[in-house]
């Protein structure tokens, strides 16, 4: 008898050297331009929010792991808490009271992630869960936007505040928006507008998105269909009545569309795994965002749209499954 053993192993059989840590590091690098842009626009307040959110996420992750009697390593150092922290900060206004940032970190890590069993098991994007929790709990504080570029080194509570372009559009109408800023589109691109830390510079966010695409951490389907659907949906309204509805270019550059489409709706854990599923996911996000913005009572709907589609993800993955050894041009291929 030969002593050679037949080794049986379950899938996956194809592996590469990707690890959670490596992916998280790539995401952090991709977030760097937008983070720098937010600090340039909002100064020390942005730094405070960023630092508190990241440290808060790390601390609450450690406490949650301790309470659930799980090992601290490798969960604490895999970088996921840091990414959640930065994404959370990106979703908050820079003038938010410090303790609300910590509450957000607690909600993101505990309610958004650890109650479901930790990384990889959460159905909803943790940073968005925290953002919506804060938004519904503290509507005033979460919609008080410091003016970018003003009082860069200030720490106190008194800073000039202004509405976001989407807020102006919702409450005062299109004419007020257009007359409020003569250089609106340039400012939207560079980030010189009011909003959350990460709702500012479209250029910085797109740069990060291109880097993620290049490193194959995300694929094009969700961002493109998300942004495309917002563009198309708002475009139809603009064509019908251009005196009430803002043009589609403004719609995709303002608010959280870029941040959401590139960094939040592409989260591997909470979005579909198949290409068709991703197309559907992106379309749904774009449609819900458009509906909330144009027909709803809130000025912005990106975070709600992504959370709602997160809820649909298991259903999408259940019904859109790739056929194994799909017939491609008469030749059998591995999926």
């Amino acid at each position: 008898m030969s002593s050679t053993k037949l080794i049986l192993q379950s899938s996956p059989h194809l592996r590469d050297d990707d690890s959670v840590r490596r992916i998280m590091l790539t995401v952090l690098i991709a977030l760097a331009p937008a983070t720098v842009a937010s600090v340039l626009m909002f100064g020390t307040r942005a730094v405070v929010v960023l630092v508190l959110a990241v440290l808060g996420c790390l601390a609450f992750e450690a406490i949650a792991l301790k309470i659930m009697k799980k090992p601290l390593m490798p969960y604490l150092t895999d970088g996921s808490a840091v990414v959640t922290g930065i994404l959370l900060a990106m979703n908050l206004p820079s003038g938010l009271p410090w303790w609300m940032v910590l509450v957000g970190a607690l909600v993101a890590v505990v309610l958004g992630k650890q109650v479901y069993g930790g990384i990889g098991s959460n159905p909803f994007n943790p940073a968005l869960v925290a953002r919506v929790f804060l938004f519904i709990s503290f509507p005033t504080a979460m919609t008080t936007w410091p003016v970018p570029g003003s009082d860069l080194f200030g720490m106190g509570a008194d800073v000039a505040t202004a509405a976001t372009p989407l807020g102006v559009l919702k409450t005062d109408g299109l004419a007020a928006l257009m007359s409020s800023d003569s250089n609106l589109y340039m400012n939207l691109l560079t980030g010189h507008v009011g909003g959350c830390l990460g709702e500012t510079s479209a250029i910085a966010l797109i740069l990060g998105g291109l880097f993620l695409l290049l490193r194959k951490v995300i694929s094009w389907e969700i961002p493109v269909t998300f942004i495309g659907t917002v563009f198309a949906f708002t475009g139809v309204f603009y064509l019908v009545d251009s005196s009430t509805y803002a043009d589609p270019l403004f719609q995709i550059l303002s608010g959280g569309v870029m941040l959401g489409a590139i960094f939040m709706a592409t989260d591997m854990v909470t979005t579909p795994v198949t290409r068709k599923g991703m197309l559907l996911f992106g379309f749904g996000c774009g449609l819900i965002t458009g509906v909330i913005r144009l027909l709803g009572s809130y000025p912005e709907g990106v975070s709600f749209s992504i959370l709602i589609m997160n809820g649909f993800t298991p259903l999408i993955d259940r019904y859109i499954t790739p056929a194994p050894f799909e017939d491609k041009g008469g030749e059998l291929q591995a999926p």
Partner: peptide, 22 residues
């Protein structure tokens, strides 16, 4: 104290109940 408005809304009921059950 700034009250957490969320807790008097329906999601707050589910979240509180979940933690009490746990």
């Amino acid at each position: 104290y700034t009250p957490f408005l969320l807790f008097v809304l329906p999601p707050g009921a589910f979240i509180s109940l979940g933690f009490l059950l746990a």
